[in-house]
Design a protein around this nucleic acid. Structure first.
Lengths: 139, 139
DNA sequence: CCTTGACCTTCCCATTGTGGGAAGGTGCAA
DNA sequence: TTGCACCTTCCCACAATGGGAAGGTCAAGG
């Protein structure tokens, strides 16, 4: 099948399919006489694997590692799990940061009148965060 | 003061200070005779504002808008609040997505032996997500 | 006075993952 | 034959940041 059919079936854009091939995440696709790339069901499966893995937030580098493990019938599941857990830890770290940011933002927004008046605790904080503000003192 | 002092005091790298100037987020800095950029305390304040705003996850475009509002003594706080709340909504949306992803990943990792054996529910799911898997049927 | 090291300047390149679009070839249907 | 929908490669752009080269400047110490 043509690239656009593979794209439709896998949910990966044609552009990205070509890109993945160019960075060697994918084996070079078979070509028809006219130079068109030609895909089979197995290729679509690989593309779906990539799509799913990307959707779970893995980087393309990690996708590559997972693909290799997937293809290796003798892989130790330990390695897959290790990759997954590293990624989980990364997401958890980022979530934690976002939670802290959200807490701050909600707090600031809550205290802002949000009307025609110009005084605004949000801007006040951006200019001089509460966390760094303290009683005046001489240096 | 020189750029590296401004950098140190604001927590914004010299590289980024020049970049912010180049994209017009910052007014062109004053120059000494030798061509060196010259910063004062007010400039450092602006840089700190940017740093803080970036730390809260606003894009440079949003930082620009907030800077403009900050400078405008007659701004309505409504506009600041609107920006903040849009950003909050964005973060909430992303957190929600991440939570869903994390749920899935934790679930998969939990069921993976993580030993020498090759069978692995993580790879199984990537290849064919549970959510799309159903009883065999003919097409 | 000269050297050395720490600054400064601009300019280009790389990153990550994706999309847009141009220029040119191909295949199929009316 | 014409037209349209494909396909190909190639270059550009994005967001925000860092690395590093090539060359100018300044201050301290010999």
């Amino acid at each position: 099948m043509n690239i656009s059919d593979a794209s439709e079936r896998s949910g990966v854009s044609a552009k990205m399919i070509r890109y993945y091939e160019s960075i060697k995440l994918l084996q070079p696709a078979a070509r028809r006489d006219n130079g068109y790339r030609d895909y089979g069901d197995a290729d679509v499966s690989v593309l779906q694997f990539i799509r799913r893995t990307r959707d779970l937030g893995f980087s393309l580098e990690e996708v590559g590692a997972l693909l290799t493990l997937w293809r290796d019938r003798k892989r130790p599941s330990r390695e897959v799990k290790r990759l997954a857990e590293a990624h989980i830890a990364d997401l958890e770290r980022r979530m934690k940061e976002m939670r802290a940011v959200l807490r701050t933002l909600r707090d600031l927004a809550q205290h802002c009148h949000g009307d025609d008046r110009s005084d605004c605790p949000i801007l006040d904080d951006l200019a001089s965060p509460l966390s760094t503000r303290r009683a005046k003192r001489r240096h």
